[in-house]
Computed example of a mutant assay.
Amino acid sequence: MSLLERLTDDMKQAMKDKDKEKLSVIRMVKAALQNEVIKLGHDLSEEEELTVLNRELKQRKDSLLEFENAGRSDLADKIKLEIEILMNYMPKQLTEEELEEIVKQTISEVNATSKADMGKVMGAIMPKVKGKADGSFVNRLVMKHLS
C-alpha cells in the first residue's frame, strides 16, 4: 500500500472517529505531497515521498524546540502530537547499535581517517539511512568515530 493510499484510508478513519488533530496533520502531509507532485511534474517515488515526510517532521521538530525555548508548553504539546502522528508514516527507525555498525562500515569503505573526511562519510551514509535515522544523531556518531 502506497503512502498516499495509507494517508487517504487514515484520513477517512480520522473523520469517522472525529479526531481533528490527526485529520489536520494528514491533510497537511497530503497537501505537501501534492505540492511536490506539482513541483516535480510526475508521481512521487517512495524515496521522494520519504523526503517530503522528513521535511514535514523536521519542520515540526524545529518548531517544538522554538516553542519549548519560549516557554509555550501549550503549543509544544500540540506539535508533539503532530510529530507522533507523522512518525506512524515513517519507516522503522534504526537502533543506535545498527547505526553504529553502519557508521563504522562506511568509514572503512571510504577510508576516512580524520574529521577532514566528515563530508565524504556523511555523503556516503545518508542515502543508506534516509528516513531511518536523524541526521544530527548520525553526524554525532560519525564525529565520535572520526576523532
Rank of each mutant, 00 (worst) to 15 (best):
Q13S: 12
R140A: 10
N139Y: 15
E68T: 05
T106Y: 02
G123P: 05
G71Y: 01
E46M: 08
K20V: 14
L141C: 07
K18A: 12
K16I: 15
L23N: 05
A70W: 01
S114H: 04
A14N: 03
L65E: 15
N111S: 11
I83G: 10
K61A: 00
K104Y: 07
V103N: 02
E84A: 12
T106K: 03
I38D: 15
L50T: 13
M11D: 03
E21A: 15
L40N: 13
L53H: 05
K61M: 08
K39M: 09
K132N: 01
S45P: 07
E96P: 03
V110G: 05
K18M: 06
T106L: 04
R140D: 12
R6P: 08
T113K: 14
R140Y: 03
S114P: 00
K61S: 05
L86E: 05
F137N: 05
Q34R: 13
G131T: 02
K61Y: 04
T8K: 14
S136M: 15
R140Q: 11
N35Y: 03
A32I: 09
R140G: 02
T113H: 12
S136F: 13
S63Y: 02
K20S: 11
D17R: 13
D117I: 06
L86M: 07
K22S: 09
E56P: 01
L40F: 05
L86K: 10
Y89G: 06
A133E: 13
K16E: 14
A70S: 15
G41Q: 04
L64N: 04
V25L: 08
M143W: 11
D43A: 11
M15G: 05
E109R: 15
E49G: 11
E97V: 08
L50S: 07
L75Q: 13
H145T: 00
Y89M: 03
S63Q: 14
M118K: 07
M11L: 15
L86V: 02
E96D: 15
V129M: 06
R6E: 14
E84I: 04
N88H: 09
G123L: 12
K144Q: 14
E21N: 10
K78Q: 15
E5R: 14
K30N: 10
K20P: 01
Q105S: 14
N88V: 02
G123C: 08
K30E: 13
R6M: 14
Q34D: 15
A14Q: 01
L64S: 07
V138F: 00
M122Y: 00
E101P: 00
D77F: 06
E21P: 02
E56C: 13
K12Q: 08
L81Y: 03
R60P: 07
L7A: 01
A112P: 00
R60L: 15
I107L: 03
V129S: 01
E98T: 12
E5M: 08
M15I: 10
N54A: 09
S147P: 04
K78E: 14
D10G: 06
M122W: 03
S108N: 04
M15R: 14
